[in-house]
Amino acid sequence: MKIKTGWFIRRILECILALINITPSLTVIINPLFFIMFFPLGAYAILSWPWIILKDLSDPFHPGESLYWLTYAIKIDGENIFFPSLFRWGIIDLTLLTIGLIIFLASFIFWLMNLKRGGGLITSGIYRFVRHPQYLGIILFTLGITIRSLRPISLIAWVTLLIGYLILASLEERSLLEIYGQKYSEYSKRTAFIIPYLKFNTPKWLSVGKPYRYMILMIVWVILVIAIITSMRGIVFALRSIAY
Protein backbone atom coordinates (compact mmCIF):
# COMPACT_ATOMS: atom_id res chain seq x y z
CA MET A 1 0.00 0.00 0.00
CA LYS A 2 2.89 2.33 0.79
CA ILE A 3 4.40 1.67 -2.63
CA LYS A 4 1.14 2.53 -4.38
CA THR A 5 0.73 5.69 -2.32
CA GLY A 6 4.28 6.79 -3.12
CA TRP A 7 3.76 6.10 -6.82
CA PHE A 8 0.55 8.13 -6.79
CA ILE A 9 2.22 11.08 -5.04
CA ARG A 10 5.11 11.02 -7.53
CA ARG A 11 2.70 11.10 -10.45
CA ILE A 12 0.85 14.09 -8.97
CA LEU A 13 4.13 15.94 -8.48
CA GLU A 14 5.16 15.14 -12.05
CA CYS A 15 1.87 16.58 -13.34
CA ILE A 16 2.32 19.74 -11.26
CA LEU A 17 5.87 20.20 -12.54
CA ALA A 18 4.70 19.65 -16.11
CA LEU A 19 2.03 22.34 -15.72
CA ILE A 20 4.57 24.73 -14.22
CA ASN A 21 6.88 24.02 -17.12
CA ILE A 22 4.33 25.04 -19.76
CA THR A 23 2.84 27.93 -17.81
CA PRO A 24 4.25 31.36 -18.75
CA SER A 25 5.09 34.04 -16.25
CA LEU A 26 2.37 35.83 -14.31
CA THR A 27 3.01 38.99 -16.33
CA VAL A 28 1.76 37.18 -19.42
CA ILE A 29 -1.35 35.79 -17.73
CA ILE A 30 -2.43 39.18 -16.34
CA ASN A 31 -1.80 40.92 -19.65
CA PRO A 32 -5.04 42.67 -20.76
CA LEU A 33 -4.71 41.08 -24.21
CA PHE A 34 -5.06 37.67 -22.56
CA PHE A 35 -8.47 38.59 -21.16
CA ILE A 36 -9.69 40.21 -24.37
CA MET A 37 -9.81 36.71 -25.84
CA PHE A 38 -12.70 35.88 -23.51
CA PHE A 39 -14.79 39.04 -24.07
CA PRO A 40 -17.13 37.44 -26.66
CA LEU A 41 -17.51 34.44 -24.35
CA GLY A 42 -18.49 36.78 -21.53
CA ALA A 43 -21.05 38.45 -23.78
CA TYR A 44 -22.45 35.03 -24.62
CA ALA A 45 -22.81 34.14 -20.94
CA ILE A 46 -24.56 37.43 -20.14
CA LEU A 47 -26.95 37.29 -23.08
CA SER A 48 -27.79 33.62 -22.54
CA TRP A 49 -29.22 34.28 -19.10
CA PRO A 50 -33.06 34.49 -19.12
CA TRP A 51 -33.10 38.12 -18.10
CA ILE A 52 -36.27 39.21 -16.30
CA ILE A 53 -35.73 42.67 -17.83
CA LEU A 54 -37.00 41.31 -21.14
CA LYS A 55 -40.50 41.38 -19.66
CA ASP A 56 -40.36 45.17 -19.79
CA LEU A 57 -39.02 45.38 -23.34
CA SER A 58 -41.62 45.45 -26.08
CA ASP A 59 -41.21 43.28 -29.15
CA PRO A 60 -40.73 45.71 -32.08
CA PHE A 61 -42.05 43.15 -34.56
CA HIS A 62 -45.05 41.96 -32.52
CA PRO A 63 -46.96 44.93 -31.04
CA GLY A 64 -48.35 44.40 -27.58
CA GLU A 65 -45.91 41.62 -26.77
CA SER A 66 -42.72 41.69 -24.71
CA LEU A 67 -39.41 40.10 -25.66
CA TYR A 68 -39.57 37.69 -22.73
CA TRP A 69 -40.56 34.89 -25.11
CA LEU A 70 -36.92 34.82 -26.20
CA THR A 71 -36.14 33.02 -22.95
CA TYR A 72 -38.69 30.25 -23.54
CA ALA A 73 -37.23 26.81 -24.12
CA ILE A 74 -38.32 24.71 -27.08
CA LYS A 75 -39.01 21.12 -26.14
CA ILE A 76 -38.23 18.33 -28.57
CA ASP A 77 -40.80 15.62 -27.98
CA GLY A 78 -40.04 11.91 -27.95
CA GLU A 79 -36.82 10.01 -27.37
CA ASN A 80 -34.81 11.69 -30.09
CA ILE A 81 -31.16 10.88 -29.41
CA PHE A 82 -29.86 13.51 -31.82
CA PHE A 83 -31.51 16.54 -30.24
CA PRO A 84 -31.73 17.09 -26.48
CA SER A 85 -34.83 17.30 -24.39
CA LEU A 86 -34.89 19.68 -21.45
CA PHE A 87 -33.57 16.99 -19.11
CA ARG A 88 -30.85 15.11 -20.96
CA TRP A 89 -28.05 15.54 -23.45
CA GLY A 90 -28.26 14.59 -27.12
CA ILE A 91 -25.59 13.35 -29.51
CA ILE A 92 -25.20 16.62 -31.42
CA ASP A 93 -24.69 18.93 -28.46
CA LEU A 94 -22.38 16.52 -26.60
CA THR A 95 -20.29 16.00 -29.73
CA LEU A 96 -19.90 19.73 -30.28
CA LEU A 97 -19.06 20.28 -26.61
CA THR A 98 -16.42 17.56 -26.63
CA ILE A 99 -14.78 18.53 -29.91
CA GLY A 100 -14.82 22.22 -28.99
CA LEU A 101 -13.27 21.59 -25.59
CA ILE A 102 -10.54 19.36 -27.05
CA ILE A 103 -9.65 21.90 -29.75
CA PHE A 104 -9.55 24.76 -27.27
CA LEU A 105 -7.43 22.95 -24.68
CA ALA A 106 -5.02 21.57 -27.28
CA SER A 107 -4.47 24.96 -28.90
CA PHE A 108 -4.30 26.77 -25.56
CA ILE A 109 -1.65 24.41 -24.19
CA PHE A 110 0.28 24.67 -27.47
CA TRP A 111 0.11 28.47 -27.18
CA LEU A 112 1.36 28.38 -23.58
CA MET A 113 4.26 26.12 -24.53
CA ASN A 114 5.17 28.52 -27.32
CA LEU A 115 5.17 31.44 -24.89
CA LYS A 116 7.40 29.48 -22.54
CA ARG A 117 9.88 28.99 -25.38
CA GLY A 118 9.98 32.71 -26.05
CA GLY A 119 6.96 33.27 -28.27
CA GLY A 120 6.88 33.77 -32.01
CA LEU A 121 4.55 32.81 -34.83
CA ILE A 122 2.97 29.37 -34.38
CA THR A 123 2.47 27.45 -37.62
CA SER A 124 2.73 23.84 -36.46
CA GLY A 125 0.51 21.44 -34.56
CA ILE A 126 -3.16 22.34 -34.62
CA TYR A 127 -2.18 25.73 -36.08
CA ARG A 128 -1.34 23.94 -39.33
CA PHE A 129 -5.05 23.50 -40.00
CA VAL A 130 -6.56 26.75 -38.74
CA ARG A 131 -5.11 30.11 -37.76
CA HIS A 132 -7.41 30.66 -34.77
CA PRO A 133 -8.06 27.24 -33.21
CA GLN A 134 -8.84 28.62 -29.76
CA TYR A 135 -11.72 30.64 -31.14
CA LEU A 136 -12.91 27.65 -33.16
CA GLY A 137 -12.97 25.56 -29.99
CA ILE A 138 -14.98 28.16 -28.09
CA ILE A 139 -17.41 28.59 -31.00
CA LEU A 140 -18.08 24.84 -31.20
CA PHE A 141 -18.32 24.45 -27.42
CA THR A 142 -20.86 27.24 -27.06
CA LEU A 143 -22.82 25.97 -30.06
CA GLY A 144 -23.25 22.72 -28.15
CA ILE A 145 -24.53 24.65 -25.14
CA THR A 146 -26.86 26.64 -27.39
CA ILE A 147 -28.36 23.49 -28.90
CA ARG A 148 -28.74 22.08 -25.41
CA SER A 149 -30.55 25.22 -24.27
CA LEU A 150 -32.89 25.49 -27.27
CA ARG A 151 -33.81 29.07 -26.43
CA PRO A 152 -33.94 31.94 -28.95
CA ILE A 153 -31.99 34.15 -26.55
CA SER A 154 -29.19 31.56 -26.52
CA LEU A 155 -29.12 31.57 -30.30
CA ILE A 156 -28.84 35.37 -30.31
CA ALA A 157 -26.04 35.07 -27.76
CA TRP A 158 -24.21 32.52 -29.91
CA VAL A 159 -24.53 34.67 -33.05
CA THR A 160 -23.11 37.56 -31.02
CA LEU A 161 -20.22 35.39 -29.86
CA LEU A 162 -19.56 34.17 -33.41
CA ILE A 163 -19.43 37.68 -34.88
CA GLY A 164 -17.38 38.83 -31.90
CA TYR A 165 -14.70 36.22 -32.52
CA LEU A 166 -14.67 36.90 -36.25
CA ILE A 167 -14.01 40.57 -35.49
CA LEU A 168 -11.45 39.75 -32.80
CA ALA A 169 -9.64 37.29 -35.09
CA SER A 170 -9.57 39.88 -37.87
CA LEU A 171 -8.07 42.47 -35.53
CA GLU A 172 -5.45 39.94 -34.47
CA GLU A 173 -4.66 39.22 -38.11
CA ARG A 174 -3.98 42.89 -38.72
CA SER A 175 -1.62 43.00 -35.75
CA LEU A 176 0.16 39.78 -36.78
CA LEU A 177 0.65 41.08 -40.31
CA GLU A 178 2.32 44.17 -38.89
CA ILE A 179 4.60 42.06 -36.69
CA TYR A 180 5.52 39.17 -39.01
CA GLY A 181 4.85 40.69 -42.43
CA GLN A 182 5.38 38.37 -45.38
CA LYS A 183 5.88 35.37 -43.13
CA TYR A 184 2.37 35.65 -41.75
CA SER A 185 0.95 36.51 -45.17
CA GLU A 186 2.29 33.24 -46.58
CA TYR A 187 1.02 31.33 -43.56
CA SER A 188 -2.47 32.79 -43.97
CA LYS A 189 -2.55 31.81 -47.65
CA ARG A 190 -1.97 28.12 -46.91
CA THR A 191 -3.96 27.90 -43.67
CA ALA A 192 -7.70 28.32 -43.13
CA PHE A 193 -8.94 31.32 -41.15
CA ILE A 194 -11.19 29.73 -38.53
CA ILE A 195 -12.77 26.68 -40.20
CA PRO A 196 -10.29 23.92 -41.17
CA TYR A 197 -9.77 23.39 -44.91
CA LEU A 198 -12.12 26.26 -45.78
CA LYS A 199 -10.18 29.01 -47.52
CA PHE A 200 -11.38 32.17 -49.23
CA ASN A 201 -9.73 34.61 -51.56
CA THR A 202 -10.76 37.76 -49.73
CA PRO A 203 -11.03 40.90 -51.88
CA LYS A 204 -8.64 43.68 -50.93
CA TRP A 205 -11.47 45.95 -49.82
CA LEU A 206 -12.48 43.24 -47.30
CA SER A 207 -8.98 42.62 -45.97
CA VAL A 208 -8.32 42.84 -42.24
CA GLY A 209 -6.91 46.33 -42.63
CA LYS A 210 -10.07 47.76 -44.16
CA PRO A 211 -13.01 49.08 -42.08
CA TYR A 212 -15.56 47.59 -44.51
CA ARG A 213 -14.84 44.12 -43.16
CA TYR A 214 -15.97 45.07 -39.66
CA MET A 215 -18.94 47.08 -40.90
CA ILE A 216 -20.20 44.09 -42.89
CA LEU A 217 -19.77 41.77 -39.91
CA MET A 218 -21.84 44.13 -37.76
CA ILE A 219 -24.51 44.37 -40.46
CA VAL A 220 -24.62 40.57 -40.66
CA TRP A 221 -25.06 40.42 -36.88
CA VAL A 222 -27.99 42.85 -36.99
CA ILE A 223 -29.64 40.91 -39.83
CA LEU A 224 -29.26 37.59 -38.01
CA VAL A 225 -30.67 38.95 -34.74
CA ILE A 226 -33.65 40.45 -36.56
CA ALA A 227 -34.19 37.17 -38.42
CA ILE A 228 -34.22 35.24 -35.14
CA ILE A 229 -36.68 37.61 -33.47
CA THR A 230 -39.05 37.72 -36.45
CA SER A 231 -38.99 34.05 -37.43
CA MET A 232 -38.66 32.03 -34.22
CA ARG A 233 -41.63 33.36 -32.28
CA GLY A 234 -44.06 31.10 -34.12
CA ILE A 235 -41.85 28.07 -33.55
CA VAL A 236 -41.45 28.86 -29.86
CA PHE A 237 -45.18 29.18 -29.24
CA ALA A 238 -45.94 26.08 -31.29
CA LEU A 239 -43.48 23.86 -29.41
CA ARG A 240 -42.83 25.84 -26.28
CA SER A 241 -42.13 24.44 -22.88
CA ILE A 242 -41.05 27.06 -20.37
CA ALA A 243 -38.30 25.51 -18.30
CA TYR A 244 -39.12 27.13 -15.00
Rank of each mutant, 00 (worst) to 15 (best):
M113I: 12
N114Y: 03
N114K: 09
N114C: 12
L115K: 12
K116D: 09
K116Q: 15
K116S: 10
R117F: 13
R117H: 15
R117Q: 15
G118A: 13
G118Y: 00
G118L: 11
G119Y: 07
G120W: 10
L121G: 08
L121M: 14
L121S: 14
I122F: 01
I122C: 09
I122L: 06
T123Y: 13
T123R: 08
T123I: 12
S124L: 13
G125A: 05
G125I: 00
I126D: 04
I126W: 01
I126Q: 08
I126F: 04
Y127G: 01
Y127M: 11
Y127E: 02
Y127Q: 10
Y127R: 10
R128H: 15
R128V: 12
F129K: 12
V130A: 07
V130I: 06
V130K: 03
V130L: 08
R131I: 07
P133V: 06
P133K: 06
P133S: 11
Q134A: 14
Q134N: 15
L136S: 12
L136P: 01
G137R: 03
G137C: 11
I138N: 08
I138M: 07
I139H: 10
I139Q: 06
I139F: 12
L140S: 10
L140F: 14
L140P: 06
F141A: 12
F141W: 11
F141C: 12
T142R: 09
T142V: 09
T142S: 12
L143S: 14
L143M: 15
L143H: 07
L143F: 14
G144A: 05
G144F: 00
I145Y: 13
I145E: 00
T146P: 01
T146F: 01
T146M: 08
T146I: 04
T146A: 02
I147Y: 10
I147F: 09
R148E: 13
R148M: 14
S149K: 13
S149L: 15
L150Q: 15
L150G: 06
L150R: 06
R151D: 00
R151N: 05
R151K: 13
R151M: 05
P152L: 09
I153G: 02
I153M: 08
S154F: 04
S154Y: 09
L155E: 05
L155Y: 04
L155A: 09
L155H: 08
L155T: 10
I156K: 07
A157V: 04
A157S: 09
A157R: 03
A157L: 03
A157F: 00
